[in-house]
Computed example of a mutant assay.
Amino acid sequence: MAGEIPDLHAQERTGTGKGAARAARREGLVPGIVFGGDVDPLPINIPFNELLKRLKAGRFKSTLFNLKVDGHDDVRVICRDVQRDVVKDLPTHLDLMRLRRTTKINLFIGIDFQNEDECPAIRKGGVLTTVRTEVELIVTAGEIPDLLVVDLSKLEDIGDTIHFSDIDLPPGVKPVIHDRDFVICNVSAPSALKSDTDEDEVAADEVPATEMSDGEAEGEDGDDKE
C-alpha cells in the first residue's frame, strides 16, 4: 500500500448555502463538500492558495488524498469536480468523495527504475531515455502500490526497449488502457555517435568528380568524339 498519500487540510464550514460560500471566498477560502461512504455530507473550506497550488501541479482529480479536518477522523478522498469562475478560471467550489478500502479508482503510479549501474546496454555506452515516469492504473483504495519497478538490467544491447507489458503488476492492479503496449524506456546510442554515423553515411553517398577513374573519363571523351 502506498506510504506517501498526500495530506489535504481543510476546516469544517459552519454555514451552508450561497451566503456562507461567498463569505468563505472573501476570507481566501474555497468552499467544498465531502460526500459518500455512507456518512452524511461534510461542508468544508480549503485555503485558496493551497488548492490553487495543487491544481497547477496537475492531476488533482486523479490523486488520492488523506483529508484532515479538525474534529473528524482522517479519511481518504478523491476529487470528483472543481467548479471554476467562468471569467477568471479560478476555483470556486470542489466536491470530494470518500473512498472505502475496496473502492476501485484510477490513479497515476510512479515508476522506479532500478539497477541502472548493472544495465549491460548502458555499460556499452548507451544512454537511458525514460519515456514515462508514471502510468495510470486501476487500483484498489486499500492496496495502492508505492511504485512500479522496472529492472534495467534486462536491457542487454543498445536499442533495447522496455514496454508496459514487461512490468510485473501487483495483484489486483490493472491498466486503464488494455490494447496499447506503450514504451516505458529505452537505451539509445549517444548523440555524438549518432552524428558521426550520419556523417559517414552522407560521405559514402557523395563521390567527387575528381575521384572518377581514368577509364570513366576517357569513355566520356570518346563519346564526344563520335
Score class of each variant (00 low, 15 high):
residue 173 V to G: 10
residue 193 L to G: 02
residue 134 E to P: 01
residue 99 L to R: 04
residue 203 A to D: 13
residue 160 D to P: 06
residue 154 K to D: 08
residue 44 I to P: 03
residue 120 P to V: 01
residue 168 D to K: 14
residue 119 C to F: 00
residue 25 R to F: 08
residue 153 S to A: 14
residue 26 R to A: 04
residue 31 P to E: 07
residue 159 G to D: 13
residue 28 G to N: 07
residue 224 D to N: 14
residue 192 A to T: 10
residue 205 D to W: 02
residue 114 Q to K: 15
residue 196 D to M: 15
residue 57 A to V: 05
residue 202 V to F: 14
residue 3 G to F: 08
residue 15 G to P: 09
residue 148 L to M: 12
residue 49 N to Y: 11
residue 201 E to K: 12
residue 166 D to I: 02
residue 59 R to E: 10
residue 105 I to D: 05
residue 97 M to K: 10
residue 163 H to E: 06
residue 168 D to N: 13
residue 77 V to H: 04
residue 191 S to E: 11
residue 100 R to V: 02
residue 44 I to S: 02
residue 187 V to I: 07
residue 200 D to G: 03
residue 20 A to Y: 07
residue 77 V to T: 09
residue 156 E to Q: 13
residue 53 K to T: 14
residue 140 T to V: 11
residue 105 I to G: 03
residue 210 T to I: 15
residue 104 K to M: 12
residue 37 G to K: 06
residue 144 I to H: 03
residue 73 D to H: 10
residue 175 P to I: 05
residue 166 D to G: 05
residue 203 A to G: 02
residue 56 K to H: 08
residue 92 T to M: 15
residue 5 I to W: 11
residue 89 D to N: 12
residue 184 I to M: 01
residue 216 E to Y: 13
residue 49 N to M: 13
residue 225 K to G: 05
residue 191 S to G: 01
residue 117 D to N: 14
residue 10 A to W: 06
residue 144 I to W: 02
residue 115 N to A: 09
residue 18 K to A: 11
residue 107 L to P: 01
residue 57 A to W: 08
residue 5 I to Y: 10
residue 143 E to T: 13
residue 82 V to R: 09
residue 111 I to V: 15
residue 64 L to Q: 10
residue 165 S to T: 11
residue 180 R to G: 00
residue 103 T to S: 13
residue 157 D to C: 12
residue 102 T to E: 13
residue 89 D to I: 04
residue 201 E to Q: 09
residue 57 A to M: 08
residue 171 P to H: 14
